[in-house]
């Protein structure tokens, strides 16, 4: 159990990217009426954006 939780926490930036940044991006785009590129829906764009950013943060160890 502890080992599983440690793994979850180790991948937390990626999970945070898809779990929080993705819907936050989509909802901000809708609020500010910004269309998603390439014909994507706001949430699909949010998932690509948040997932990629979270993965990069996971690998690099930095969000910026």
């Amino acid at each position: 159990m502890a080992a599983v939780l440690k793994q979850v926490l180790a991948w937390m930036p990626f999970f945070f990217g898809i779990g929080f940044i993705a819907p936050l991006t989509a909802q901000l785009m809708q609020l500010w009426e910004i269309p998603a590129p390439f014909g994507l829906s706001p949430i699909a764009f949010g998932l690509v954006f948040g997932g990629t950013w979270g993965l990069i943060a996971n690998i690099r160890g930095r969000w910026l």
Binding site: M12, F15, F16, G19, F20, A22, P23, L24, A26, Q27, L28, L31
Partner: peptide, 15 residues
């Protein structure tokens, strides 16, 4: 903390 953020965000309350 993460569970609360994720749950709220995916139910339309991310902001």
């Amino acid at each position: 903390f993460m569970g609360t953020l994720f749950t709220m965000a995916w139910n339309g309350y991310a902001i």
